[in-house]
Design a protein around this nucleic acid. Structure first.
Lengths: 197, 197
DNA sequence: CGGATGACAGATTTCAATATCTGTCAGTCG
DNA sequence: CGACTGACAGATATTGAAATCTGTCATCCG
């Protein structure tokens, strides 16, 4: 890490922190490591982030926001609501599974954060639920779905698919049969949402 | 623990182990503690259980079987399948939540075991899924449910309700709104199972 | 003979001393 | 003046030595 002489910004700190986390993992990454990577004293890092927990949370937030951003594209796509819902759930599962596989250290950081009080994970969930709410609301408007309360239905769908996006199940995502299980749960939920004529 | 002079049986060892686990928790309970509680040498315990892990698994199995037993009563009850399904899921949730609350040490042991390779948890899940399969099969036979594959549907229902019986969510079971969330998920799943005329 | 024992080796855990880290802040420097 | 530094106190993590535990087995006892 060359101590580039650009001004120290929150953004540069986040980038360095992500790199340090990737290299050392959440258990061993320290604020001192981050400062060293940037060629500054650790006191300077504390000028931008009040605590180590805040720094970790900011990194995770950035990382989660990337996922949310990709998914929001699908949520707004120009397709019938049922297809959009299926695509969205499949994309959520695929994204989480990919992150768990190819960015294990950052994923571990995310799991640590899930267990803490932090607001980042809570906000991420709220964001995802509101994307789901929009899809279901669209389905209610076209008459495809029968939910009386789109928000409650979105929450139920999100919770019922937890096995396929909640980090505590990450280990099981690579086991054979998982794809079929996912398809079965999604089919059941979509069937439950459909308007019964 | 008085060193009662009855012969040493697997059953007595399991009882003592459960007591030791309850008192010390899974992290601190040792085989030596169990032997001390029984007034025997720890070598004698190894005559009945090959390893400490096997002992822990046997205790958990006994503990899980008690839950399975209670639930099977509901699965066989003389009610319409939909009501039976709702009762069964509610009872499963209630049982897990109660155990987590009033037997935290044994529940923690169960969580340790969930993370290990052991077969006890897998068998417990298989057992519960087969109870669910029987309820759904009954519903298919009465024409209330539309599943083409009762076993796959049962698996989907079980996985979709994971948030309300999987130990990794235990912390959240006492939060306000959990009851409503549970009801919403169950309603959605039951609606998904119903035959659409 | 079948069940129980206790000494044992190697693995794991505990504990206390040591080192490192977190978060603060008075002071430096451009 | 305001961004940065580095020394500091208290908290946390690491380390290595000692204690305990796991699992085995030759031996004992009824």
């Amino acid at each position: 890490m060359a101590p580039t002489s650009e001004t120290l910004t929150a953004e540069r700190i986040l980038e360095a922190t992500e790199e340090v986390l990737r290299r050392h993992g959440p258990a061993k990454a320290t604020v001192v490591d981050v400062a060293r990577a940037l060629g500054v004293s650790h006191g300077s890092v504390y000028r931008h982030f009040r605590t180590k927990a805040a720094l970790r949370e900011a990194v995770t937030k950035r990382w989660l926001d990337r996922t949310s951003g990709q998914l929001s594209g699908i949520a707004e796509a120009d397709r019938v609501p049922e297809a959009r819902l299926r695509d969205w759930l499949a994309a959520l599962f695929a994204a989480k599974r990919r992150k768990a596989g190819e960015d294990p250290e950052l994923f571990a950081t995310y799991m640590v954060l899930t267990g803490e009080a932090g607001t980042a994970v809570g906000e991420h969930v709220t964001d995802l639920e509101s994307q789901l709410t929009r899809i279901i609301q669209a389905g209610v408007e076209t008459g495809d779905f029968a939910a009386t309360d789109a928000e409650a239905a979105a929450r139920a769908v999100f919770q019922a698919t937890g096995r396929f996006h909640d980090p505590c199940y990450a280990r099981e995502w690579e086991e054979p049969g998982t794809e079929a299980d996912f398809a079965a749960v999604v089919d059941l939920l979509v069937q439950g949402l459909r308007r019964t004529p």
